[in-house]
């Protein structure tokens, strides 16, 4: 660390360490704690180790059974894929209808009072913390299996996400235009229209496109709990061990998801 000289004035060799002893000890403790947690997890987790060692072989075997993909049900898969995209799009649109007012009351600077603020915040947290597939379970229980349950599941899950980002955008707006509109005699509606909307519009488009892209991915799993879309065919193929059909479905999902990403990044560039 530093050069030490003893009384005789002879200099000792320079020493340098990357960390001080205290830092080293701290790091060691962090490593130790992490190792202990992992050890605990591995010991108590119900893992059948022979399965772990045979996993690569099993996975390879599964891929073997998937090739070549079976295109005979191409028609049905195509229709289900379109249905999946419809679910994603309609759900995104529906979620916006609910998310915008939620964002308005969940943003500190626009919410009418503290009660509405907490209602807004509650909606954000409750909708966002429950996963799509769990929403789907719930809506399937209520409305029966089908696309409506799927649309509602995706829409509900999206509300929190969209509204949270929009509320943050509203909270971060520049106050000056709002002041100017208020000074010109504008009421709340006019302030919203002239002071707030123009500032958050780019965020609105960006968030919508982003969520649509995510929703396409999410809507591929709805079918696994009976809520419509391509997942139904996938589940059916897997249950009946038609692995080659399952492979076709997976490829179809891959294509649509990548296409969705390309479309959304192109849209983002257009509107921003």
């Amino acid at each position: 660390m530093t050069r030490a000289r003893d009384a005789s004035g002879v200099s000792e060799p320079y020493r340098w360490q990357r960390y001080t002893t205290a830092e080293r000890l701290g790091r060691f403790l962090i490593y130790l704690a992490s190792a202990a947690i992992v050890f605990w997890a591995l010991r108590t987790l119900d893992i059948f180790w022979p399965w772990v060692w045979s996993a690569p072989a099993e996975i390879a075997d599964l891929f073997g059974r998937m090739t070549p993909p079976d295109l005979r049900r191409g028609d049905a898969i195509l229709r289900a894929m379109i249905e999946t995209i419809h679910i994603a799009t309609l759900a995104t649109a529906l979620s916006l209808l609910i998310a915008l007012p939620t964002a308005y009351i969940a943003a500190q600077n626009t919410t009418p009072n503290s009660v509405t603020l907490w209602i807004g915040r509650f909606i954000l947290v409750a909708t966002r913390s429950v996963n799509t597939i769990i929403w789907a379970l719930l809506f399937v229980a209520i409305f029966g299996p089908g696309v409506l349950a799927g649309i509602l599941a995706i829409a509900f899950r999206s509300i929190g996400f969209t509204a949270k980002l929009m509320a943050e955008a509203i909270e971060e707006i520049d106050r000056k235009p709002v002041e100017a509109v208020t000074a010109a005699g504008g009421d709340k509606g006019k302030v919203l229209l002239y002071g707030i909307v123009p500032q958050v519009l780019p965020t609105f488009f960006a968030v919508t496109i982003l969520r649509w892209d995510i929703n396409i991915r999410e809507s591929t799993v709805l079918g696994l709990v009976g809520a419509g879309g391509i997942g139904m065919i996938l589940q059916g193929a897997i249950d009946t061990f038609q692995w080659q059909t399952a492979a076709t479905v997976l490829i179809a999902i891959l294509i649509v998801v990548i296409a969705g990403e390309v479309v959304s990044s192109a849209l983002r560039k257009r509107v921003l």
Binding site: I47, R217, T220, L224, L250, V257
Partner: peptide
């Protein structure tokens, strides 16, 4: 590209139910 739930069904079929 694949939702974790989809990946999960495939792994469940490949290596059995469980963690």
């Amino acid at each position: 590209s694949f939702h974790p739930v989809i990946v999960a069904i495939i792994f469940v079929k490949a290596v059995g139910f469980g963690a």
